[in-house]
Simulated scan of single mutants.
Amino acid sequence: MTSPQVRTADEKTILVSSLARHRQVILWKIQDLDDERLRRPMVPSGTSLLGLVKHLAGVEYGWFCETFGRQVEPMPFDLDQDPESDMFAAPGETTADIVAFYQRACAAADAAISEIDLDTHGTSWRGDTVSMRWVLVHMIEETARHAGHMDIVRELLDGATGDHAPAV
């Protein structure tokens, strides 16, 4: 839930808050499931909860860090060799490995967001010039889209539904 203060805050605060909310959903969707269920593909494309987390980690680093010339850790996949390799947990990767990768990517992205003005331009992996503002909006869309996928996959796994963790 968005706090009343955020609803009337400056543009960057609103965008960062929205991204943070959807990131929380990503981690909430994998709670209380064992490794086998997190890896289990539930649709013909092979989508799994853990694969979606891995993918989102890669795009956090890609859009927020690589686009703006910032340091990125070595990726645990090779998109040149296999364009879908970021969507699947490799046999040697643990749930803890992938969650930690996502958390490091989000932390690196947050550092970039806090230090880079919304109007600053960078170059995307496709060679397009983009602003930090555009990247924030794009990543809100990307994260929310995959949170929706995770909601469906989670429902197929154990019947759990919901778009945000219940308030405690």
Rank of each mutant, 00 (worst) to 15 (best):
L136I: 09
M1E: 14
H149A: 02
D32I: 12
A89W: 00
E73C: 04
V153E: 01
D158M: 07
R70K: 13
A9P: 14
V16A: 11
G122I: 02
A144Y: 00
W28A: 05
A112T: 06
P44E: 11
E36T: 15
L118E: 09
D78H: 07
G58S: 09
H121Y: 09
S124E: 04
D32F: 13
L156E: 11
E66P: 03
R145S: 05
V130D: 05
T143K: 03
Q103R: 15
L136G: 02
T94P: 09
V72D: 01
D82V: 05
G122S: 04
F88T: 03
D97H: 07
G69C: 07
A105R: 02
R23K: 11
D35Q: 14
G92L: 14
L27A: 08
W28H: 06
Q81Y: 05
R70T: 00
P74M: 06
R37L: 13
L38Q: 01
D32G: 13
G62P: 01
V130H: 04
T161F: 11
D151Q: 14
I152A: 15
D35P: 08
V53F: 02
D78I: 04
T123L: 08
A112P: 00
A57E: 03
W63I: 00
T120G: 03
I26V: 15
V72L: 08
C106R: 08
R133Y: 10
D82A: 10
H164N: 15
G58A: 09
I113F: 02
L156T: 10
I14R: 14
S114D: 15
M87H: 10
V16G: 05
H149I: 00
D117C: 08
M139V: 07
D151A: 13
L79Q: 09
S48L: 00
S114T: 12
P76G: 06
Y61D: 04
W28K: 01
A165E: 13
L156F: 10
A9G: 13
T161Y: 08
P41G: 06
D35E: 15
L56F: 04
D78M: 03
S48V: 00
Q81F: 06
W63S: 05
P4H: 11
S18G: 13
A100F: 07
E155N: 14
